[in-house]
Write a protein that binds this DNA or RNA. Structure first.
Length: 315
DNA sequence: CGATTTCCCTGGCCGC
DNA sequence: TGCGGCCAGGGAAATC
């Protein structure tokens, strides 16, 4: 079966939400320490040219807020208080990878002459050498390695800012609490959701109520907690269940990590491995795992939305 | 000023 | 087969 839904799998694995970004963060963090940026190249677009601003700075590990990767930059010169952040948002198709060699492979998936050169890359970008035709930035490091950012659809973004100054990135500046932070409570969730006239899915996608959810995990969380995606108000009980569902869904996805993504990517035949992890997203027309009702598709904010018309009752 | 709409992008599938 | 149409989608800018 290679239905229209089958295409969605190929798309979804490319969309990094919090679990995917966190997986990448964990892979990159030990690789991007104790080295300095000696040169940079950027694709000629305002979304990426700030990559140059990292030249001369020392990489000091990778953290994350929502779907944003924050690479700590220390000044190599005297100023101990001077700190910057190299911020990377992967958009829909962005990938980061680290090679052991400087410069570009001449062709194909691996550089010539050294088949092991992309070993680190394999761990850092979920399986591939950078797509050479879609490179958006290259940072050359002082230890002979390079950090690459490739992004087919150019929805990604690179920024270099003084540490903590996020005004130039409105969504990041107004980002809601991390889902696993104690600040993210069911009371917070319900108060925020019910104070707005917008439907709950819209709010969850906006990153202000809680950080890191995208289309996939919103649908999964709403399905799990049995909340209708178009609901505008939620009860205390629903809010409690949704809070728990968000954490459970994200935690499971993080635990599956790159393995989940890799399985998805390799799954040409689709069905099996995907259904193991996703109960709702992309399953319109199939049976609800919980009650057997046929899952429905609707459009919210121009985004495909799948839900169970029986389990998730319209408000 | 908050809410809503538009636009940015490419690859791949579909129908004619 | 070739090609136009359509879809996927996070976030920022423009507009209401």
């Amino acid at each position: 079966m290679h239905t229209h839904l089958g295409l969605d799998w190929a798309t979804l694995i490319r969309v990094p939400e919090l679990p995917e970004v966190e997986t990448i963060r964990r892979q990159l963090d030990p690789l991007l320490r104790d080295c300095s940026v000696v040169d940079a190249w950027a694709f000629d677009s305002a979304k990426f040219t700030q990559a140059h601003e990292a030249v001369g700075w020392q990489l000091n590990g990778v953290s994350r807020r929502g779907k944003y990767l924050l690479i700590d930059l220390d000044s190599p010169t005297a100023e101990p208080t001077a700190k910057r952040e190299l911020i990377v948002h992967l958009g829909m198709t962005g990938r980061l990878s680290v090679s052991n060699t400087t410069g570009l492979p001449s062709t194909g998936a691996a550089p010539t002459g050294d088949s092991n050169s992309w070993e680190q890359s394999t761990r850092a970008n979920l399986g591939d050498a950078p797509a050479l035709g879609h490179l958006r930035a290259i940072w050359t490091l002082d230890d002979g390695r390079s950090l690459y950012f490739d992004d087919v659809r150019r929805f990604g973004r690179i920024a270099v800012v003084p540490a903590g100054e996020h005004d130039s990135l409105a969504t990041l500046a107004a980002l809601g609490p991390e889902p696993f932070d104690e600040a993210f409570t069911s009371e917070h969730l319900r108060a925020q959701v019910n104070a707005s006239k917008r439907c709950i899915k819209t709010q969850l996608l906006a990153q202000r109520v809680v950080a890191g959810l995208g289309n996939i995990y919103v649908d999964e969380s709403l399905w799990r907690s049995q909340v209708h995606p178009a609901a505008k108000k939620i009860t205390i009980l629903q809010s409690q269940k949704l809070t728990e569902a968000i954490r459970d869904v994200l935690a499971a996805a993080i635990n599956n990590g790159g393995t989940t993504l890799r399985n998805y990517r390799d799954a040409e035949g689709v069905a099996g491995s995907n259904q193991r992890y996703l109960d709702c997203y992309g399953r319109a027309g199939q049976s609800c795992i919980r009650c057997g009702t046929t899952l429905k598709r609707m459009v919210i904010d121009a985004r495909a939305t799948v839900f169970c018309p029986n389990c998730q009752r319209r408000p």
